[in-house]
Design a binder for these strands. Sequence first.
DNA 1: GTTTGTTTTTAACGATCGTTAAAAATAATA
DNA 2: TATTATTTTTAACGATCGTTAAAAACAAAC
Lengths: 217, 217
Amino acid sequence: MNRTKKKKSTKRKQTREKILEGAIHVFSNYPYCTASIRMIGKAAGIDHPLVNYYFPTKSMLFEEVIKQVTDEYFQANISWINGLEQLDPETAVDLYIDRFFDFAAKHQSALRIVALNMVQPEGHDDIPGYEQVRNFFAETKQTFINAIPMHGTADEIETFTNVFNTLAINYLGAGNYHASILGLQPGSPEYLKWVKETVMLVTLPQLRKLIHGNKQK
Amino acid sequence: MNRTKKKKSTKRKQTREKILEGAIHVFSNYPYCTASIRMIGKAAGIDHPLVNYYFPTKSMLFEEVIKQVTDEYFQANISWINGLEQLDPETAVDLYIDRFFDFAAKHQSALRIVALNMVQPEGHDDIPGYEQVRNFFAETKQTFINAIPMHGTADEIETFTNVFNTLAINYLGAGNYHASILGLQPGSPEYLKWVKETVMLVTLPQLRKLIHGNKQK
DNA sequence: GTTTGTTTTTAACGATCGTTAAAAATAATA
DNA sequence: TATTATTTTTAACGATCGTTAAAAACAAAC
């Protein structure tokens, strides 16, 4: 009896999961309005009205997609912090940032969805879930601050984390664009190496100041 | 006789110009696929099939829009370089960057169009004019290099100009997003001040090295 | 004033869109 | 096995899309 009940629940979950995966894929490649339910149905291997059976509106589907990819991100974020407090600050930073970029390189959906949807017209209704698009940025900054003890004014910390985050979203979320300009293959080890080195080279002086505070002044 | 001919030519130019202005406005607010001919017609104050009379396809209109906004940018760029060679390097840099940000703040169409359209799916046809979206980035970097004599390896120069450009496109092209996260008004003097200071603070150490070469080592 | 050329407006096409409703298929229950 | 519940598929709706064609309006030429 329990097995039978589980079977139905499993089938329902499987279909829902298939739709979500298809939707994540499509919403990671097209801005909200361009991504269509028919595209998502095709990506999920189902007929498109079935999307409406499981997610009554496109809005609700998009919001669920954003929630899922950003939750995944923040769960991973928590795990990167593990073990850092036993290390000296510079080693901790190196390790955290290595973990950050490794994960981001392999899970680009969140960054791509943000990069695809961040620019919205003034004076019009935001796309559904836009608050989450915005919060992703703010919360990613905050987790950096939680992970790395920094000594500086709030403005200094804001500047650093803002720039770091902006570069990461751009070089990884819009990786195809930047890689093609550089003549590299998007997602290739060479490109990812370039991203990490570039971001670190430019942000490192400021980051060093924040790690050590005014000790060096 | 010549005046009559001029009058017709003027009327045609005026309508064409009105359509282009409407198109620039709409393409600066929506990604290519979302921006519709009906929106553009409305923004230009005409009936939408008239857009097709002056620009046979949406593609051709978009390409003309991109060409116009980026040409405007590069013409302005040339003017910012004037007078720099008589100044010492640091003053020249300050002046150039002031001019850069002042212009960019007042003419955001190019940056917004780039930010709205840079992420494109792999393995599908690019949107029309995508080569120009890409070239804008490359050429903006190049004009920086032309304006400011820098001493470093090609990689170092690439890193700096790439990061500088990425931050500018983001903070100005996606200014609404970033301003709202910071709790500032987009386009306000406070926000523009924040942008300039943030970009300069983070890129300045690297820029100083490039201006002075290895003299300080 | 009439004819010709150009521009603008109106109407409509075929296509895709998100969504709904109903039929069909499948699964669960008695 | 029959009935009920759930899921999937099919068909279609009203809406918008880029575009085309034709009518109307305007302008220029004779």
